[in-house]
């Protein structure tokens, strides 16, 4: 199926609730823990407001599965999975 990550990929972190943002299913809310990755993309992602502690709602995947749309700080943002992978988050219950 399109857009569903394969199970073989590992999520980073120890906590069961810690995942990278590309793994989160639509209609789920998460809290940002940390942004990793290349310096330039990390800085841009931080600038767009994905700072630690920010609540992010995963809205939907594009029709072909990538990129993914998020809602945070009252606006909508889309990231390719490759960028979403660098954002470590915790699922909000």
């Amino acid at each position: 199926m399109l857009g569903i990550p394969t199970k073989s990929k590992h999520t980073k972190g120890h906590n069961m609730n810690e995942k990278t943002l590309d793994f989160i299913e639509p209609e789920t809310s998460v809290k940002v823990l940390k942004v990793t990755g290349q310096k330039s993309s990390r800085k841009r992602i931080l600038d767009m407001g994905l700072t630690p502690g920010t609540r992010v709602d995963v809205i939907r995947r594009a029709p072909l599965g990538d990129p993914v749309e998020f809602k945070l700080k009252g606006y909508n943002l889309s990231l390719r999975k490759r960028e979403a992978e660098t954002v470590l988050v915790e699922v909000l219950k």
Partner: peptide, 12 residues
Amino acid sequence: GEDTPFIMELPS
């Protein structure tokens, strides 16, 4: 070269 990250706003 380094891929430019895809970070795009979807404005209202």
